[in-house]
Design a protein around this nucleic acid. Sequence first.
DNA 1: AACTCCATCAACCGCGCTGTT
DNA 2: AAACAGCGCGGTTGATGGAGT
Length: 323
Amino acid sequence: MGRPPCCDKVGVKKGPWTPEEDIVLVTYIQNHGPGNWRGVPSNTGLLRCSKSCRLRWTNYLRPGIKRGDFSDHEEKMIVHLQALLGNRWAAIASYLPERTDNDIKNYWNTHLKKKLRKLHGQDGHFPEGLSPSQSTSKGQWERRLQTDIHTAKQALCDALSLNKSTNNLPDLKPSNVNYPVCPSTDPAQSSTTYASSTDNIARLLQSWMKSSPKSSQTSSEITTQNSFNNPMGNLSSPSEGTTATAEGFDSINFCFSSSNCEEARKFTPENTLFQHERKPNLDNQVPLTFLENWLFDDGAAQEEGDDHLMMDLSLGEDDHGLF
DNA sequence: AACTCCATCAACCGCGCTGTT
DNA sequence: AAACAGCGCGGTTGATGGAGT
């Protein structure tokens, strides 16, 4: 007696999302907030299962997501955190502002794994302290424990810094990856919410139009006077002169027009309702050592009780040539 | 130019956890 | 306490585009 499927397979659409679907989803979340995914397909008419909707939102449409090239800094962080936490991508993602766990996971599998393998031998063996060998010396429960400590630490930091929310210190804690966004009843908030999401939609529209001009004409009529030559991941606001005239695009058409795009730009994620969802932007400002110290702090605390537990958390000498 | 191989990444699948009834 | 529903996570797959032959 197996678990019933999360959604009946009949009539459920699979495969890549179209801009129309994205817009429907974003519009819905704008009005109702993320959550209650079960009800999203029925309430929006999307022929997608709830999981697909959630995934699409969290990995792609959610405001504040950075896509594209990973910086050296981010690479180091990933390698480091992977060694520390193992393949707990969600936990790793909580330390990397604006990156999704899926993105990090993909990047690890396609780039970093190879890079490390190259450095540490063709057999794919990693040195002590670097994953995947870490799993042999450090159990899953131990890594979980570490993350729990992080969480506790975060809670403590939160509690202690409630009155210092405006300070300039980097937020050296795992960002909250939950999306405690309440349904907005404030029209002003709604508009800002929307604007923050349209950056993502604009980006995907660009890549979509580049990659599949045929489908863009069959399902909708999208015109643009701009050259959409931005590579995916190169964040840009909706381009001037861009219009989306498909049914369903109408509701957000204002945001793709030139005048409103300026407005949209004002709605930085920090100003939006979705700011809760946005990971703190610390990748640019926070020196790695700062964060490392914080990480090691945890490690050191645990090491007191277990010497081999936190064996080699710093990047090995070999890794210095990695980046 | 045509074909094959490979790399990348968005999306899917299945399982486990947690909250609710 | 048990059953159920919903969500989150990690592993895997498949479509796509680019590089190589």
